[in-house]
């Protein structure tokens, strides 16, 4: 059997993590290609539906990444995101989703190295967990 390579969707804030991803790129910090970015204006914009949709339609993991507490470009969107992720975690883990499949991190605009490390760590974690069962369910 071929080695499993996970697919991870990352909803990232334009002002911090997306910028950090740019920075990581400029600094040529090699990352796993298995994580793909969806640019949001703020983590506070990430509707729980987006996470559920991603997990049902093939993502093995979802990363949400925004500004550090106190640094949110929109004052407090990241705090709202944190509550929504908390809620989703409570729901999803009850159905056997490993909580490592949904991750919230704070990566500031200057933290290119932290972004690259986050990507590689998460890909590594999910690779170890194996494919998401939800992705294989033949229903949406």
């Amino acid at each position: 059997m071929e080695a499993f390579e996970p697919t991870i969707i990352a909803f990232v804030c334009n002002w911090c993590t997306y910028t950090a991803a740019d920075l990581a790129g400029t600094a040529r910090m090699v990352q796993s290609p298995r994580l793909r970015l969806v640019r949001m204006m703020c983590t506070g914009m990430v509707d729980p539906k987006y996470v559920i949709k991603a997990l049902l339609s093939g993502a093995d993991g979802v990363l949400i990444s925004g500004c550090h507490p106190g640094d949110c470009h929109y004052i407090n969107g990241n705090y709202k995101a944190r509550r929504r992720v908390k809620l989703l975690n409570e729901i999803l883990t009850g159905f056997g989703f490993d909580e490592r499949r949904l991750k919230l991190t704070w990566v500031g605009a200057s933290e290119g190295n932290e972004f690259a490390a986050t990507v590689n760590r998460m890909v590594e974690d999910i690779r170890a967990l194996g494919p998401s069962e939800a992705a294989a369910v033949q229903a949406l």
């Binding site: 539906k49 339609s57 729901i91």
Partner: peptide, 28 residues
């Protein structure tokens, strides 16, 4: 597209999605 990805697609779609979303919306 979804059918191709999963090999088969149960229809009507979005039933799992609906229930999981409803949990997010109103379980509290």
């Amino acid at each position: 597209g979804w059918a191709r990805q999963k090999g088969a697609l149960r229809m009507p779609t979005d039933t799992l999605f609906f229930h999981l979303t409803r949990m997010a919306h109103m379980s509290l």
